[in-house]
Each structure stands twice: as structure tokens, then as C-alpha cells.
């Protein structure tokens, strides 16, 4: 009985390995294909992990739930129905069951693990995954992508062009594409607007906006002089002072009022 138990465990272990490998390889292929598609269309590539992980989990679950003994029996008609019968009656001990188990242990030696593993198919899959990896490297190197925003702008321009209402240049043209906005400053300086639809070859150095945490220093501590002068007074220049007598001030005021009225 122990020997037969060992046979069953070995079958399960072998099939678990095969299922794990197959699921992983297929999930990898799914990941690579979706990764390429996403990077070509300028989407966030990490999303490729989601379908690949989902496939891996489902495939693994289905594989584990599969009845491995039936798979062996189908491949080896010699063992047909015998494996299942012996497994179901594993606790039963009588001459007939013992004979059945012994027969299986003898015949299971004819079973080859390679027969459950489609080497040709798996080789193609591995080769395909290598090709896909190279494709990803090349597309990254040459920055291959279809920019949907540019394509959309071109399409809008084309449609407006067909309607006889060209996008035009300057502020109006830009307004048509980007909207007017609330502030005049949105359009910046006039000379920029004058450029119209001309294409600019610009490079924005993102590094300039980034903060390097290594460059951030601790604020300097400065010592201030705590001693203040004994007397603080406001000194006014003599030239600004009016030296008009008090009794004549009314007269001057009236004079200036008259001047103002005239």
C-alpha cells in the first residue's frame, strides 16, 4: 500500500510541476504581448501584469483541479480505469486489490513523463517569448509608439480642413484646439501666438523640474545681534518742514483752495 501511495504522490507531483511551468510560460507570453501593445500605444505598461496574473491564477487552479489520473489513463490505455479503481480502494486490502496495485506499480514504469509534455509546443512558446523580449527592447530603443493625442489633433485638423474652415494661425487657431481659457496669460506673449500652426521642435528637460533630494541642504542657522540702540527716533529733513506761522496758515489754505477752483 505504501508503494502505491508513493506512485500516486509521484504522479501528482509531476503533474503539478508541468501545470506550473505551462501556466507560467503562457502567462509570460500574455504579459509580453500585452506589454508590447500597451507600449506601442503609449499606455501604462504595468497594466499588462493584470491579465497575465489573472490567467496564471485561473490556469493554475484549473490545472490543480484536473483529474491527473484520467490524463494518465487516456495516454496509457494499459492503465485505463485501473489507476482510478486502485486510488478509490486504497484503504481496501484483499488479494484482488493487492494484485491490482502490484500490477499498476509494474505497469506505471512504462509511463514516461515526457509524453505529457509537448516539447515542440513548449519550445515554440519559449522561442516566441524570447522574440517578444527583443521586440520590447527594440521598441524602447527607437521609441516606437503611436501617439494618440497627435493622431487625434491631426484628425481634427484634417476634418476642419475638409469643411473649408482651416484651423488658422495665432490665437484663434489655438483656441479652436485647446479652448480659450479664462485668462489672457494662457496665450502668453503675442510673438508666440504669431507662430500659428508652425511646428516647434522643443525639448523639455524634465530634470530641471525634479528635485534632487541629495541637493536639499539643512537651513543655515544665523545668529542675529540682539542689541538695539538705546534711542530710536525719526529724523526728518529740515527742507520738508513748513515754517508758516499759525495765524497765517489759514490764509495759505484759502489761497490754495482758490487756486484749485480756478
Amino acid at each position: 500500500m505504501k508503494k502505491f501511495n508513493k506512485v500516486l504522490k509521484e504522479i501528482n507531483f509531476t503533474f503539478s510541476n508541468i501545470i506550473l511551468f505551462n501556466s507560467f510560460l503562457n502567462a509570460l507570453l500574455i504579459f509580453l504581448v500585452i506589454y508590447i501593445v500597451l507600449s506601442l500605444f503609449d499606455f501604462y505598461q504595468a497594466y499588462a501584469l493584470v491579465p497575465a496574473a489573472l490567467y496564471f491564477i485561473i490556469s493554475l487552479y484549473k490545472g490543480i483541479m484536473e483529474k491527473h489520473l484520467i490524463t494518465v489513463e487516456k495516454k496509457y490505455p494499459l492503465l485505463n480505469e485501473r489507476l482510478r479503481t486502485a486510488r478509490d480502494n486504497i484503504r481496501l486490502e484483499n488479494p484482488v486489490v493487492d494484485e491490482l496495485k502490484e500490477d499498476i506499480i509494474r505497469d506505471i514504469k512504462k509511463v514516461e513523463v515526457a509524453s505529457f509534455f509537448n516539447q515542440k509546443k513548449q519550445s515554440y512558446k519559449i522561442l516566441l517569448s524570447i522574440v517578444l523580449c527583443f521586440l520590447i527592447i527594440f521598441s524602447a530603443q527607437f521609441d516606437l509608439s503611436f501617439n494618440f493625442k497627435d493622431a487625434a489633433n491631426t484628425a481634427v485638423d484634417f476634418i476642419y480642413g475638409l469643411g473649408g474652415n482651416e484651423t488658422g494661425s495665432g490665437k484663434q487657431g489655438l483656441e479652436r484646439i485647446a479652448g480659450s481659457g479664462e485668462s489672457e496669460s494662457v496665450f502668453g506673449d503675442a510673438y508666440i501666438a504669431q507662430m500659428g500652426d508652425e511646428m516647434l521642435d522643443m525639448m523639455i528637460k524634465q530634470a530641471g523640474y525634479e528635485i534632487n533630494l541629495d541637493d536639499v541642504k539643512e537651513p543655515e542657522r544665523r545668529e542675529f545681534d540682539e542689541l538695539f540702540p538705546d534711542e530710536v527716533f525719526v529724523a526728518t529733513a529740515d527742507v520738508y518742514e513748513e515754517k508758516i506761522k499759525e495765524e497765517q496758515q489759514e490764509l495759505v489754505k484759502t489761497y490754495f483752495l482758490k487756486l484749485a477752483k480756478e
Binding site: 480505469e81 482510478r84 479503481t85 486510488r87 480502494n89 484483499n94 488479494p95
Partner: peptide
């Protein structure tokens, strides 16, 4: 006696 000892699979 032997006939009754013959095992049968659960699915059968």
C-alpha cells in the same frame, strides 16, 4: 468470495 472482493472505482 473473490467476486465480492473485486474493487470498483467511485465514478463507476
Amino acid at each position: 468470495t473473490l467476486v465480492r472482493q473485486v474493487p470498483i472505482a467511485n465514478d463507476l
